[in-house]
Amino acid sequence: MDTNFNFSRFLKVISNEWCLNWKKVLLFWGVVVALFIGYFAYQGLIQKEIITIYSAFWTAILTMSILQGFYLQIYFREFLSKKKTTSLLLLPASRNETFWAKLLLSFIPYVIIFIMITLIGLEWLKMQNEWVRQANEFDEWRLRDFHRFYQTFDLEGDEFRIFSIMFLVWIFSASIHLFSIVSFKKWAAVKSIVLIFGVIVGASLATFVTYFLFTGSFPVYAFPGERLFTNDGGAYFMLLYPISAYCYGMFFSLFLMFISYVKYNEKTI
């Protein structure tokens, strides 16, 4: 057990990784936070547009998941150069220790920044939107839209949903990027994009099939994310569809993560 995983050595690996990368990490996430604040401030204070919490949440999620790939490269950068791969593979620490240390270090700042952006950032957005609403006259659809956001995402009652989505997005993004880093040497970006589409299509198909097996009909969208017409009046859709989509997303991500781990262990220069 000590050969495969030793906690004090694991802490040493974490401390090393942090000491060698903290400047890059802070710079990276500093730029990300600044961009978000800048974007929201521009929308609210200059364009005088109300920013929907719903759209802000998904903007944060999508941007973070894309950036997560670049961020992972700070920790798994070794595989981008032979010199770095050599020093990683020869470090007297087990493969478990180095792999999990890197993954943990890529996850923690993601969670912190995500919390900052979603909870603090969106609370700030509410205030900003209120100023914008009071200072301007909006037409009716905007006001209706504005109220709907609060109903769509009540941050005080929806923590579980938000963090479930956050974790799924992280593991999905991390697994795709990790798999690409350890597997693709040439055309990495193109292959990664194909892989992303492959996983999304795979998970969607599996979700559709699961839905069909349970209900005997396929779900039909009226328009994305809003409502669909089904034989059961939406009851199955509201429960079965998101749960199975979540489970398949997790399954595909964990599967890719597992393959990445195996490939990481067998990595040569």
Binding site: T3, L91, A93
Partner: peptide, 8 residues
């Protein structure tokens, strides 16, 4: 196998 005691 890149065992720890080997790498040490």
């Amino acid at each position: 196998k890149r065992q720890v005691d080997f790498l040490q």
